[in-house]
Computed example of a mutant assay.
Amino acid sequence: MGDFGSRVRALLAERGLSIRATARALNYDPAYLSRVINGRQQPSKALAAGLDGLLEAEGALVSLRAPEVRPPEPGAERPTGVDGDIAHMRASVAHLLAHDNRYGGGVMAPAAVQVWRAEQRKLDRGAVPERARAGYLSAVAELAEIAGWLLFDSGRWDASRTAFLESHLLARQAGDRTMEWFALDMLAMHDVQTGRAGEALRIADELLTRPHVPPRIALLARVRRGRALAQVGDHRRALTELEGARAGLEDSISPRDPAWAWWVNDSEITGHEGEALLAAGEARTAIPKMRRALELASAPFPEGRGTLYYSVALLSAYAAAHAWREGEATLVSINALLETVTSVRSRDRLHTTLRVMAHRPHVPPSLLDLMRHTAKAS
């Protein structure tokens, strides 16, 4: 990875590009890109390919990227015991997230729960040596968090909340503050989704008042706080919180940021701004935000989960604004995505939006036909 980072730095210097400008062009978080270039994190295939194309490296960066960790061949030497279990958990997390980014959590949630529960049973039996207990707890906490996220995307709200709560408890037992913060953020996200605005506000306030919380964690807390305020009708303060989160997006980059926070980027903030505006009844103002969030989210995975999520969000904004021509074009693209993306959360929102649209006046007949087709097919 050192060769990869050195080569990227040299190419950036040759072309007069900064890390921030490069991250913006590829829709990646600058902090994540910085960690990769400085050898602190493995570049994904998508990032290596994106950098290769942007910097016109003709395949050099793709070839320099370290190969992914794959299961060893039968008979090959592999970690055993607790070390092997932890290695298996880390590899499982990477595999589950890669699949989720492309196809959504519907199919992978049961597999994530199975891996999480199997490893947690070893903890419950006391089968983990004390010397390895903290590392094992941390790895299981991450698995529980990933399982919670996939269950969340599958629309299994109660099971998802249970997994996030378990992740928080395990992280505290492990003394893993970064994973504890992650679990709290996921719980606040869950509360916003399920209408527990008061609970989301309490979690956000807890994170914002804790000492030594990294800037990016504070930024996320402001996002959750903004969405919760929008839910309770305090739209002015909601938008102020989200504006503050946006202002702090680049300033929040810090060596103390946890590795998992790389996904907090312009697309994420823009999408939340759009949602808050939509909740405030400002659909026309929300539309450009939703369009931009979709544009940014679709750059790395044009047919992925994020593209479906923001396409449905954009359709909701068009429906609220009675923008039927634009809504019809968006629904056509959504139908293509539904063939591969299994995100139940996005599909449920799509069905809700279609029901709302069906009761709007002056919906064109061609759009009504497409809506009926989509409802049956999904």
Rank of each mutant, 00 (worst) to 15 (best):
D3W: 10
R9W: 10
A13K: 14
R15E: 10
S18Q: 12
S18W: 11
A21C: 00
A25S: 14
D29E: 13
R35L: 06
Q42A: 14
D52K: 09
D52G: 06
G53V: 10
L55T: 10
P67M: 02
P74R: 08
G75N: 10
G81R: 11
D83F: 09
A94P: 00
D100I: 01
N101S: 03
G105M: 07
A112T: 02
R117V: 07
Q120N: 15
K122W: 10
G126R: 08
V128S: 03
V128L: 01
E130M: 03
R133I: 01
R133C: 10
G135Y: 02
L137S: 06
S138W: 11
E145V: 05
S154T: 13
Q173N: 06
M179I: 02
E180T: 07
W181N: 05
M189P: 04
H190K: 05
L208A: 12
P215C: 03
D234M: 12
A238N: 01
D251G: 01
A261S: 15
T285P: 00
R291E: 15
L314G: 01
A317I: 06
E328D: 12
N335Q: 10
A336D: 15
E339P: 04
T342S: 15
R345M: 05
R345P: 04
P364L: 02
P365F: 01
L368F: 02
R372D: 08
T374L: 13
